[in-house]
């Protein structure tokens, strides 16, 4: 779907991190782990941004300013934005009694809606969230309000456990073996190595976002090419070369 979404709010919530709420019919079709491709006036390519929350007609996008496009986006406080989506496959909702959600930095937002969906299914949800430093902390209150077991780690020890998410998991002896993850590549590589069951969501530069241009492909362990936008962004653990 291609439509204009109305900006409800676009606020700074942590260092370089913004929460954008959009009113759009796309919300009714969206699933946890999907993304939308947002046109930012003045920029040629759309920006693929993951969906953090789906509430009736409201989509919440939590994004980090990493370049000129997102820097321009943060200053658009009202009006409409052209939205293409929802795109990608999203996370599967499987019958798992216990799920371990692992998010790193700006990879955490799509896992919020996913946690909600798994709680709704009756799964017991544990969330491990890692950040570089406390100024980049997001979604702590929101996850707590959901009633999940929440663990937080920071690389510099400025908040929560001092270390990375896997060290935290060892430290607290979290033994769940079905994982759902999103975050930086080194984190996903480590998860891919340690766990056998679960899914992770990848990020990639994209042009079309719909599977036509082959700009965002990654290589599968079977040697085949997979489009992050269309075949992903969510892949089973072990599927692709990270």
């Amino acid at each position: 779907m291609l439509e204009n979404g109305k900006i409800i709010q676009n606020n700074n919530i942590a260092e370089d991190i913004y929460e954008l709420k959009l009113e759009t019919d796309l919300a009714y079709k969206a699933k946890a782990g999907q993304f939308i491709n947002i046109e930012i006036p003045g920029f040629f390519l759309r920006r693929p941004l993951s969906i953090a929350m789906i509430d009736g007609p409201i989509l919440t996008i939590i994004y980090k300013v990493v370049g000129q496009g997102t820097a321009a986006l943060k200053d658009i406080k009202a009006g409409t934005l052209s939205l293409l989506g929802p795109l990608g496959n999203g996370f599967p909702l499987l019958d798992e009694a216990r799920v371990l959600i692992i998010g790193g930095g700006i990879g955490l937002p799509p896992l919020y809606e996913l946690a909600r969906q798994y709680l709704k299914k009756g799964s017991e949800v544990t969330v491990v969230a890692g950040f570089q430093t406390s100024s980049q902390l997001i979604l702590e209150d929101e996850f707590k309000a959901l009633g999940v077991k929440l663990y937080i780690a920071t690389d510099d020890g400025s908040y929560g456990y001092h270390g990375n998410v896997l060290a935290l998991i060892d430290h607290y002896k979290i033994s769940d073996d079905f994982v759902l993850a999103c975050g930086p590549l080194p984190m996903l590589r480590a998860i891919d190595k340690r766990y056998e069951r679960g899914y992770y969501s990848l990020e990639q530069r994209m042009a079309c976002g719909v599977g036509a241009c082959m700009g965002c492909v990654c290589k599968g362990k079977d040697g085949k090419a997979y489009r992050v936008c269309k075949d992903g962004p969510v892949f089973p653990l072990g599927k692709v070369e990270l």
Binding site: L45, R205, M206, A207, C213, M214, G215, K219, A225
Partner: peptide
């Protein structure tokens, strides 16, 4: 053909680069 390794897309003013 698998195509090229690494980043394949880069934006630039009023356009883009591809190296599929």
């Amino acid at each position: 053909r698998y195509g090229n390794e690494g980043i394949r897309i880069a934006e630039c003013p009023s356009g883009m680069l591809n190296s599929i």
